[in-house]
């Protein structure tokens, strides 16, 4: 890293970028948590939780990756990110499906018109 790009990416700049990513990730995480507290029913809360699972986790892990540089640590962080992004939609979908099975209705929902034939 240092050999390739000494003038463009000094450590300070890398630190700043990583700090920005970490702060952004924490901000998104808190936003999602506030949404989970604030939103009116279960189905809307799933969307708020989705924010903390996708971009918040991605930004925090990306910030850590910048700190680690090109090492095995970065590969492991990338693997955690990949795994989180593969599993979080499955968990969300399973949650929503289980909620319909328990009979929970999306109380605030207006029904969308089926936009085509089926």
């Amino acid at each position: 890293m240092d050999l390739l790009l000494p003038p463009l990416f000094p450590d300070l700049l890398l630190d700043l970028l990583s700090m920005a990513l970490l702060i952004g990730g924490v901000f998104l995480g808190i936003s999602g948590a506030v949404g989970v507290i604030r939103f009116p029913d279960f189905y809307t809360r799933v969307h708020a939780a989705g924010v903390t699972d996708t971009l918040s986790a991605g930004m925090i892990l990306a910030g850590l990756m910048l700190q680690a540089g090109f090492t095995l640590v970065t590969v492991k962080l990338a693997f955690i990110l990949l795994f989180l992004w593969l599993t979080s939609p499955v968990a969300s979908h399973a949650l929503a499906r289980a909620a319909t099975h328990t009979g929970a209705k999306p109380v605030t929902a207006t029904s969308g018109e089926p936009s085509s034939s089926n």
């Binding site: 948590a33 989970v36 279960f42 939780a49 699972d53 289980a98 328990t102």
Partner: peptide
Amino acid sequence: ICDRILAVNM
């Protein structure tokens, strides 16, 4: 219960 599981997952 789904709210609780959602929170635990998060």
